[in-house]
């Protein structure tokens, strides 16, 4: 009987370990891995999934077995054996989890040290968060700014992250990277993207009404594509409609404004469809052009009813060039 029990236990143990390995290797719970840190994190994660699966099946399995095996009828008044403790058993189930936890802790620390190490030839990208857009600034490329993040595959990046208003959080799931954007503080985050592609950027700290819309995209491309992008984005397109779209995109207007031409649907701010017509009717004696221009430079001047003050960026007058301002005004007049 004892030999049979031991044999069964070994079988169960092997089965559990088998399932654990299957879970570790087979479960695909993380998004695409597109950075060096992602690979390291995913490996740690898989091992932990394996261990967690074994532990869960073992404990839950024992619990379910016990419930099925030891239940009695309602009128059964007998007692179970008066077992209060078992020192060796308690020692074992204190030490084994402790050891598991220590091993995981050490491994986690090594992964952490590996992923947060700065490289020599880093490209610096400044990330400025504000309600509810991301602005990426490239000091090494003449301080060019964009609301979309472009990176070169294989090129280490150091993000210097801050906020202009409340706390936001810069999160790129595909990179397994996240760092809060805190006003008055610059937080650093280092990543080396390793896979070409486009990856969502999301805000991961509640920042107000437009938190869910505070989105952008990380475009990982070849060096030549990146340089082409730098070229293109440094100057306004010649075509007025393209120029307007360019400015709309660059300053992340879509985070809050619906505009059919741009395919944006946010309702944090007023709908821009038909603004060309409406702007001329809003204030007596004010032309549509002046109205739009003033609303951009001084958003509090003509608040639309039902929308809170202070959500629109207040510093577009400093950030936008005259050409950009002109382009967006003309573009909106045609919407």
């Amino acid at each position: 009987m004892r030999e049979r029990t031991i044999f069964l236990l070994i079988l169960v143990a092997l089965a559990l370990i088998g399932v654990g390995v299957l879970a570790a290797v087979g479960l695909d719970l993380m998004p695409t891995a597109a950075a060096d840190r992602a690979d390291a994190v995913d490996q740690l994660f898989r091992i932990m999934i394996g261990v967690a699966t074994v532990i869960f099946l073992l404990v839950e399995g024992a619990l379910v077995f016990a419930v099925l095996r030891f239940r009695v009828k309602e009128d059964d008044e007998s007692s179970g054996p008066p077992v209060h403790d078992n020192l060796s058993l308690e020692l074992v189930w204190t030490l084994i989890p402790a050891i598991i936890v220590v091993v995981i802790g050490v491994y986690s620390f090594r992964v952490l040290s590996a992923i947060e190490v700065t490289a020599e030839d880093e490209m610096v990208v400044e990330v400025v968060a504000r309600q509810f857009t991301w602005e990426f600034r490239y000091p090494e490329f003449d301080n060019l700014t964009s609301s979309q993040l472009h990176l070169v595959v294989g090129q280490p990046v150091r993000f210097e992250i801050t906020s202009e208003d409340v706390i936001h959080s810069f999160y790129i799931p595909a990179f397994r990277a996240k760092r809060d954007a805190t006003p008055g503080q610059i937080s650093e985050l280092v990543v080396t993207p390793t896979e070409l592609g486009r990856y969502p950027i999301r805000c991961a700290e509640l920042c107000g009404a437009g938190h869910a819309n505070m989105l952008s995209e990380a475009v990982v491309e070849s060096e030549s594509d990146f340089e082409a992008w730098v070229e293109n984005i440094s100057s306004l397109p010649d075509d007025p409609t393209e120029a307007g779209r360019f400015v709309f995109e660059k300053y992340g207007c879509g985070a809050c404004h619906t505009l059919e031409d741009m395919g944006t649907t946010s309702t944090v701010g007023p709908d821009m469809n038909g603004i060309g017509q409406r702007a001329g009717e809003r204030i007596e004696g004010m032309t549509a052009e002046d109205y739009i221009r003033q609303s951009l430079l001084d958003p509090s001047a003509h608040l639309v009813e039902g929308f809170a003050d202070g959500l629109m960026p207040q510093d577009l007058d400093q950030r936008m060039s005259e050409a950009e301002l002109e382009a967006i005004v003309q573009y909106l007049l045609n919407q």
Binding site: F70, V72, D76, E90, T94, P97
Partner: peptide, 25 residues
């Protein structure tokens, strides 16, 4: 991570309580 240990100990102790008992569900 350390705090997992006393927590785990409780779970195992509860499991050992029901083990070989006369369970009324």
């Amino acid at each position: 991570m350390i705090i997992a240990v006393p927590t785990g100990v409780k779970i195992f102790s509860w499991l050992a309580t029901v083990w070989d008992g006369k369970l009324h569900l």
